[in-house]
């Protein structure tokens, strides 16, 4: 029981002290899990990051489940995930409940407008970074543009676009590779 609580608490700290999640969480994960607790090696952590990125869901949650499972089996995975989730749940629920009441406040309005500007800048920057990493061949660029147009101007559900892209990848990846090796 103690080890489950330990897992919960470690991920609770990680969830409660990092902003943004995903990649920005890596230094904190490394510090807590590799250096302080010795639960996983750095290579294992990076592997699990790679898996977290190519499986559905929030990367931070995927990583928590993976490390927890490696350490103490299924219950370990669940406790780690609950630890990761708990701070968000408490903090955001509190804010969401009270913010509505302050929404009319003039100063909060000014501050939020400023924050929105940064959020747009940060997100545009994320898109740029993603584009640099994912647009690795002409065919990828064509597909990206095609999906972008569908997402912007049609009502095709996002799920369908993701599934289509997986099928596209399986069908055409060999083709792209074959050309590269020629």
């Amino acid at each position: 029981m103690k080890q489950y609580f330990e897992l919960f608490w470690a991920f609770f700290r990680i969830g409660g002290l990092t902003f943004g999640g995903g990649l920005s969480m890596l230094p904190m994960l490394k510090y807590e899990l590799v250096e302080k607790k010795n639960w996983v090696t750095e290579e294992e952590l990076l592997d699990c990051y790679a898996i977290g990125q190519c499986t559905p869901g929030i990367i931070a949650v995927n990583t928590a489940t993976f490390v927890g499972y490696k350490k103490c089996g299924i219950a370990g995975g669940i406790f780690s995930t609950l630890g990761m989730v708990a701070p968000s749940l408490v903090i955001i629920t509190t804010i969401a409940l009270f913010l509505e009441q302050f929404m009319g406040n003039k100063w909060l309005g000014h501050a939020l407008m400023g924050v929105r500007a940064v959020v747009c800048a940060l997100m545009l920057n994320t898109v740029l970074a993603l584009a640099k990493k994912s647009l690795i061949s002409p065919l990828c660029i064509v597909w990206c543009v095609f999906i972008f147009l569908l997402a912007m101007f049609t009502e095709v559900p996002t799920i369908l676009l993701v599934v289509m892209s997986g099928v596209f990848g399986i069908l055409f990846n060999g083709y792209a590779k074959g050309r590269k090796s020629e």
């Binding site: 190519c54 929105r116 500007a117 959020v119 747009c120 997100m123 545009l124 994320t126 898109v127 993603l130 584009a131 990493k133 994912s134 647009l135 990828c140 660029i141 597909w143 990206c144 543009v145 095609f146 999906i147 972008f148 997402a151 912007m152 996002t158 676009l161 993701v162 289509m164 892209s165 997986g166 099928v167 596209f168 990848g169 399986i170 055409f172 990846n173 060999g174 792209a176």
Partner: peptide
């Protein structure tokens, strides 16, 4: 292979969503 196709699509989906957010924010 599947992720070779999904990654550029995810970029496109996020780009479209971010533009929507920018429109409402700015």
């Amino acid at each position: 292979a599947a992720f070779w196709g999904i990654r550029p699509a995810v970029t496109a989906l996020i780009a479209a969503a971010v533009l929507g957010i920018c429109k409402v924010s700015l």
